[in-house]
């Protein structure tokens, strides 16, 4: 039995004023408005699922984590304060944290195998640049990532897109911890400049 009024729909946000809309919707959702949640879902499920899948990779697990995040939005919408940041950023920060938590617990389970595999085969790190897809925002981020030094780019993307801790990044790149921390900071700051930061 399907619930009435529920139809499948891709959750990629389109249309105007989406960012403001998300803020307003989240406030309505906090008041228990299920219709507003449906609209919020349409706006944010694409960004949330895409980010989670980028980090978690496994499709089934990505779906599970995304569901967890979206349900958490419903549960904790009242904790969002619209005066203190945009809803989309709040949501994506939450999604990233959950995705990273998941990928790490999965990795911890198969850590030994991973280490063996790592020794046998040193993978290419710059997957981001290989996974270019259409879309202006992708193009922008890719271009700005390309402008970083290789070590800055690898440090940032291994952490953000692949969910590695900075210690793991240091191990994978055979760099001292201090160097990785500095590359991460420099990488993020350069991105800010390239993408047109609001310093």
């Amino acid at each position: 039995m399907r619930m009435p009024g529920v139809t499948g729909r891709a959750g990629c946000g389109r249309g105007e004023g989406n960012r403001v809309e998300a803020d307003e919707l989240l406030v309505l959702v906090a008041g228990g408005d299920q219709k507003a949640f449906e609209d919020l879902y349409a706006l944010v499920s694409g960004p949330v699922f895409g980010l989670v899948r980028r980090v978690v990779r496994d499709p089934a697990q990505s779906e599970e984590v995304s569901q967890e995040v979206l349900l958490e939005l419903w549960r904790s919408a009242a904790r969002f304060d619209p005066g203190r940041g945009s809803a989309l950023s709040w949501i994506l920060t939450l999604a990233h944290r959950r995705a990273v938590d998941r990928v790490r617990s999965v990795r911890a389970a198969g850590e030994r195998e991973q280490r063996e595999a790592r020794r046998a085969h040193h993978p290419a790190f710059d997957q981001v640049t290989e996974e270019v897809e259409a879309g202006l925002e992708r193009e922008w981020v890719r271009r700005c990532l390309d402008r970083l030094t290789a070590l800055q780019r690898q440090s940032v993307t291994l952490a953000y897109y692949d969910g590695y801790t900075y210690r793991e990044v240091a191990e994978r790149l055979s760099l001292p911890l201090g160097t990785v921390k500095t590359r991460m900071r420099d990488g993020l700051t350069s991105l800010r400049k390239c993408l047109g930061g609001v310093a």
Binding site: Q34, V48, R53, E63, W74, T93, H96, L191
Partner: peptide, 28 residues
């Protein structure tokens, strides 16, 4: 720095499986 990090998320959006919507809305 957190502002900068969130920018990396914007480029990854992808349509989720349609069945996910049913499940989430049912749960809600």
């Amino acid at each position: 720095l957190s502002e900068d990090a969130v920018r990396l998320a914007w480029s990854t959006a992808a349509p989720p499986p349609t069945a996910m919507r049913d499940r989430v809305l049912a749960a809600v």
